[in-house]
């Protein structure tokens, strides 16, 4: 998928993460987390895997993590990317591109 316009998903509440995606020529990932010391590698891996599954090859992805579980991180990244393409409301490929 192509990041077509700026989009945000998620909140700054505890156990959540806020993901912002913006169009860019290369893939840039920036992560800020309250549990960065222990988990930054895992958070990064989850986000990269999710972006790869969505076929996102370029764009600026900013994650502000408030201690979200992996499943929440995935959900927020996916929602932000689908929103950036205006495709978040219906016909989501559950179990396909959106999977564990």
């Amino acid at each position: 998928m192509e990041i077509e316009k700026n989009a945000v998903a998620g909140t700054l509440e505890s156990s959540d993460a806020q993901v912002t995606v913006e169009p860019a020529d290369i893939l840039e990932l920036s992560i800020e987390s309250i549990v960065a010391n222990q988990y930054v590698k895992q958070i990064k891996a989850t986000i990269q895997e999710t972006l790869a599954r969505l076929g996102v090859e370029r764009g600026r992805v900013t994650v502000i993590d408030k201690g979200a579980l992996d499943c929440t991180l995935k959900a927020r990244v996916e929602c932000a990317v689908f929103r950036s393409c205006g495709r978040s409301q219906a016909g989501i490929p559950w179990g396909g591109m959106i999977d564990d």
Binding site: T72, C79, D99
Partner: peptide, 16 residues
């Protein structure tokens, strides 16, 4: 936030 809730729901159902 109806769209975001569905992504969140899907992964909760599949992972928790």
């Amino acid at each position: 936030q109806k769209d975001a809730a569905r992504f969140s729901l899907y992964h909760a159902l599949r992972n928790i």
